[in-house]
Design a protein around this nucleic acid. Structure first.
Lengths: 221, 221
DNA sequence: TTGTTTTAAGTGGCCAGACCAGTTGAGGTT
DNA sequence: AACCTCAACTGGTCTGGCCACTTAAAACAA
């Protein structure tokens, strides 16, 4: 006997996936209740729960106590985040993280040069202004820094790439604020942002890339 | 009251992760049994199972009935696979996937030019030879094709990057073999591989990159 | 002693049932 | 019409049970 039958909870996941496809369910729609699934698929409720919990961990679904289970949108940031939390145990991986982030951000910038909208460019400008203002008040514009970079990656209109980037950076947020706190770093960082901004305004890929390289180099995450 | 206490199964995942770190457990090591975890963490066994099933789906652990639960290697390749099986319903995501893969592979190649060992270069040569041989026998050297690319990404010595690449490509294997089956594609693909191989042998980054760009372009995954 | 068989303990797989804690909506009260 | 109240439903969790499988110790046979 080697007829290893697949585990029930995996079967349930398949069924749910199929259910979504057949019924054309989209993000926000409600899934049948655990009890109903258990009934309909003729499996125990615990198996249904194992399947749902796994999908929840992956951010595919969202469960609201007392209400039900809902399909989530494409916000699977947690995916890589989980991966990293299990993977990132030594110094080596940190270097890999930085390197990978650099790659993704630079390439995203390249794509953004061709795809960015005027609206997004305008936003970038705003972030710089707001950062300057905060800085003049003596505050550290960590959030603006983050949004500046994120907007750029968003502007390549590749959600997968954005997902990866967010996951990588999320993990590094501490390092970012530490970087900005370095003596004299802030003004330089700001002018680097401006340079990137101007380059993007002119869709000057070469110049933008050079500026970003410089910026990432100096930031030393 | 808004003190939403975290779900138990998430807590269990945290604990397990911590357990792995503290006890310096590595891939292949055995985790405590479900009943013992349930006992030690003072939660129901069902909660433990929900946690374990979720981790299993992510390929972090492997459960063998009658034996126990074991930590798996960094083989979290299944991640994106699962993600995509749920989300790859529109053409858009497919494009993003291809684009992201292209970026990662090209940049990995750049890094590999500086970091690749002679041994790896030799292996690349072997893969080409073997592919030629198989092809002369009338077989499609899908595996060799895959290994050729994988070895290159491995040679950048960034496991995170490798993980991402494998995740993306794993999903695309079907596409790969379909690509190779295209009339007259195989010989061209082989010669493109050779060009990359020669460039890598000479650590000629520029030439290697150009060749790879060409190759990926023609492959049309 | 050695090699084989049996058996018991341990483990994951799965289920049924129970209770708690939120949410919702229908029906009654004001 | 606006406001309760409460029953029904939903997820969250635990308990305890039974099955199938693995392993190793114990019993047995050579």
């Amino acid at each position: 006997m080697s007829s290893v039958q697949p585990k029930v909870y995996l079967e349930v996941i398949k069924q749910i996936n199929q259910m979504i496809n057949e019924d054309q369910l989209v993000s926000g729609d409600k899934l049948p209740s655990e009890r109903e699934l258990s009934d309909r698929l003729d499996v125990g409720r615990s198996s249904v729960r194992e399947a749902l919990r796994a999908l929840e961990l992956l951010d595919f679904i969202e469960t609201r106590r007392g209400e039900g289970t809902y399909i989530k949108s494409f916000g699977s940031y947690r995916l890589v985040e989980i991966l990293l939390s299990f993977l990132l145990k030594d110094e080596n991986t940190r270097k890999e993280l930085t390197e990978t982030r650099r790659i993704i951000e630079l390439e995203a910038l390249r794509l953004a040069c061709e795809r960015i909208t005027n609206e997004s460019v305008r936003q970038l400008g705003q972030f710089i202004s707001r950062a300057k203002e905060e800085w003049s008040h003596g505050d550290l514009p960590v959030e603006e820094d983050y949004l500046f970079h994120k907007t750029i990656v968003e502007s390549c209109h590749n959600r997968l790439l954005l997902n990866l980037w967010v996951s990588l950076v999320e993990y590094n947020k501490v390092a970012i604020s530490r970087s900005l706190q370095r003596e004299g770093r802030m003004p330089v960082s700001l002018s680097e942002h401006e340079e990137i901004y101007y380059a993007l305004q002119n869709r000057d890929c070469e110049r933008a890339t050079m500026a970003m390289k410089q910026h990432l180099e100096n930031s030393r995450f």
